[in-house]
Amino acid sequence: MSQKPGWLRPHGRPWTRGAERLVYENPWIRVSHHEPTAPTGRPAQYGLVSFKNLAIAVVPLHDDGTVTLVGQHRFPLGDYSWELPEGGSPHGEDPLEGARRELAEETGLQAREWRRVLQMQLSNSVTDERAIGYLALGLSPSDGGYASDETEEIVLARVPFREALDAALAGHMEDVLTVAMLLRVYHMAREGALPDALTRAMLG
Rank of each mutant, 00 (worst) to 15 (best):
residue 126 V to L: 13
residue 119 Q to A: 08
residue 123 S to D: 13
residue 147 A to H: 15
residue 129 E to P: 01
residue 104 A to E: 15
residue 159 V to Y: 07
residue 134 Y to S: 06
residue 136 A to T: 01
residue 163 E to V: 02
residue 146 Y to C: 07
residue 98 G to T: 02
residue 95 P to G: 03
residue 132 I to W: 03
residue 114 W to F: 05
residue 156 L to E: 03
residue 165 L to N: 04
residue 93 E to I: 10
residue 158 R to D: 01
residue 145 G to V: 06
residue 116 R to Y: 03
residue 117 V to W: 02
residue 111 A to W: 04
residue 107 T to H: 09
residue 158 R to C: 07
residue 136 A to Q: 02
residue 163 E to W: 01
residue 92 G to L: 12
residue 149 D to A: 15
residue 134 Y to T: 09
residue 145 G to L: 12
residue 124 N to G: 10
residue 164 A to R: 04
residue 108 G to V: 01
residue 120 M to C: 11
residue 98 G to S: 07
residue 93 E to H: 09
residue 105 E to W: 08
residue 135 L to V: 09
residue 121 Q to M: 10
residue 106 E to N: 06
residue 166 D to M: 09
residue 121 Q to L: 14
residue 115 R to L: 14
residue 101 R to S: 07
residue 151 T to F: 10
residue 129 E to Y: 01
residue 135 L to E: 05
residue 141 P to S: 09
residue 99 A to I: 02
residue 133 G to V: 09
residue 146 Y to D: 02
residue 108 G to K: 12
residue 99 A to C: 05
residue 92 G to R: 11
residue 132 I to Q: 14
residue 92 G to T: 11
residue 134 Y to P: 10
residue 109 L to Y: 15
residue 147 A to T: 11
residue 141 P to A: 12
residue 157 A to Y: 07
residue 139 L to W: 14
residue 121 Q to G: 07
residue 117 V to N: 01
residue 166 D to P: 02
residue 123 S to Y: 14
residue 107 T to V: 00
residue 109 L to C: 05
residue 103 L to M: 04
residue 137 L to F: 08
residue 115 R to D: 06
residue 140 S to C: 04
residue 148 S to V: 15
residue 115 R to H: 14
residue 148 S to D: 01
residue 146 Y to I: 06
residue 142 S to P: 03
residue 132 I to C: 01
residue 137 L to Y: 06
residue 110 Q to C: 05
residue 133 G to L: 06
residue 131 A to K: 12
residue 164 A to Y: 10
residue 151 T to C: 02
residue 157 A to S: 12
residue 155 V to P: 00
residue 139 L to G: 07
residue 136 A to N: 04
residue 111 A to P: 05
residue 136 A to M: 02
residue 92 G to A: 11
residue 122 L to N: 10
residue 159 V to F: 06
residue 96 L to M: 03
residue 121 Q to D: 12
residue 102 E to R: 15
residue 121 Q to A: 15
residue 92 G to D: 13
residue 121 Q to I: 00
residue 103 L to S: 01
residue 148 S to F: 01
residue 119 Q to V: 12
residue 137 L to R: 13
residue 149 D to C: 05
residue 90 P to N: 06
residue 112 R to V: 02
residue 165 L to Y: 05
residue 128 D to Q: 09
residue 91 H to A: 10
residue 167 A to D: 14
residue 162 R to S: 14
residue 138 G to P: 12
residue 128 D to W: 09
residue 161 F to T: 05
residue 119 Q to T: 11
residue 90 P to Q: 09
residue 145 G to W: 12
residue 114 W to M: 04
residue 130 R to E: 14
residue 102 E to N: 13
residue 142 S to K: 11
residue 160 P to A: 00
residue 114 W to P: 03
residue 117 V to P: 11
residue 143 D to L: 07
residue 161 F to V: 02
residue 149 D to F: 11
residue 106 E to A: 09
residue 90 P to Y: 08
residue 118 L to Q: 10
residue 106 E to W: 04
residue 116 R to W: 01
residue 168 A to C: 11
residue 153 E to W: 04
residue 97 E to Q: 14
residue 162 R to L: 15
residue 133 G to R: 02
residue 155 V to E: 13
residue 114 W to H: 03
residue 154 I to P: 00
residue 99 A to Y: 04
residue 138 G to S: 08
residue 106 E to T: 05
residue 139 L to N: 13
residue 157 A to E: 13
residue 105 E to P: 01
residue 118 L to C: 02
residue 98 G to H: 03
residue 91 H to T: 06
residue 135 L to H: 08
residue 156 L to R: 12
residue 110 Q to S: 11
residue 140 S to N: 03
residue 103 L to E: 00
residue 162 R to W: 06
residue 119 Q to L: 00
